[in-house]
Design a protein around this nucleic acid. Sequence first.
RNA 1: GGAGGUGUGGCAGAGUGGUCGAAUGCACCGGUCUUGAAAACCGACGUACCUCACGGUACCGGGGGUUCGAAUCCCUCCACCUCCGCCA
Length: 422
Amino acid sequence: MLTLTYLRERRDSVISSLAKRGLDVTGSVDRILELDASRRGIQKDLDDTLAESNVLSRKIGELMREGKREEAEGVKSATSGLKEKTGTLRDKMSSLENEVHELLSHLPNTPSDMVVAGKSAEDNEEVGSWGEKPDLGDHNKPHWDIAKEKDLIDFELGSKVTGAGFPFYKGKGAKLQRGLIRFFLDYADDAGYTEYIPPLMINAESGFGTGQLPDKEGQMYHMPVDDLYMIPTAEVPLTNIYRDTMVNASDFPIKLCGYTPCFRREAGSYGKDVRGLNRLHQFDKVEIVQIQHPDKSAETLDSMVDHVKGLLEALELPYRILRLCAGDMGFTAAMTYDFEVWSAAQERWLEVSSVSNFETFQSNRLKCRFKGADGKNQLVHTLNGSALALPRIVAALLENHQDADGVKMPKALVPYVGFDRI
RNA sequence: GGAGGUGUGGCAGAGUGGUCGAAUGCACCGGUCUUGAAAACCGACGUACCUCACGGUACCGGGGGUUCGAAUCCCUCCACCUCCGCCA
């Protein structure tokens, strides 16, 4: 969430910045500023009225102490009008505040200067790539066929027990999942991230803190009985650790990671692209999160990008890196790099990681601050990235590394899975 | 699930209707002293909003209520602790 101060001071640049996302927010920005202005007027009134009645109250206290009951009663009667006035002003204040907050919480983050304008994936910039697309020749089965032949993943069984998009992993398929998770976590551990095993359900405050609510309400599984949401990513519980906290400037950077299953309703995505492991309702992911000083977050984002590069190269998967255009970025991000691996049999790129800097957008919602050099409290920067999401990695591993009689495991993975071929 | 208790500033911990935004101790910050440090002493020391400023207002787990006035009384929700029951 943008801060009101920022919006007040930088109205024009907010509008032009969000125009890069293809949004015209002039109306709602001006509405916010207008409501805020009248809120301030009301507050002045309210504060004055309260000050007035505080004076009278103090006076009554004095008179009572001096035993002048009758005089006190006289002053009391003078307060009734004030009381009524504060009541109505208070109501006005809070309804204005709510309205401002509502509008403000629906404004997406402003893209960084480096981010280009654009509406869709078409406009994303490719900023790096690695590896060669393998030539599969005759051995070019899509991963769902390999998974079936080798009995690694059972999609139909998942449909029976739960529903589409909830597969069972089995035998070497399950071991591959476990090995990948452990490989990713060890790699993050080596990079100085502290591992957490967070709750898989979160409350609405946490959903708001990282920006899933209200923007992505319909994309999360919700348990109405207890009003809890299944996490769509470990980002939510991990980042919310720091909700309502003051962090010590000397603790920067704070680095956390965690493996969790992730749950997404994926409402609205039907048809193609959902075959096999391409899009699931439940999938496994290791997430890395950093809390950083505002001056350092840009370089931190780069270091997180390098982290993901290292993982993909160890897995011997050709990838490309995209800097998302403004319109393709998530609601909360100021800058995002997506990693896509080449899926050799499907002959398409699959997104396997998204690394973002949210700057102060989340920390403002989270109320996560530190004491700056000038002694004033300021908002931290938050960042996170997938390192990595499993299903599409598995898809690419199976497809890219297949040969005449199976699938060869990349060297780095062999100690983790305990076999070198499937 | 049943019974009871607790929730105050970074931490500890006073405060049961008016002079309490809140004693005291610790931590932190600035200064004196010192070659330097420690100790000692002095000072500053919560957050947010409004105001050019002086200053004002709100906040003692969250929300609501009583009252001229609430950290203090009442209701409710939440969290934690203790005991009992149940269960992995």
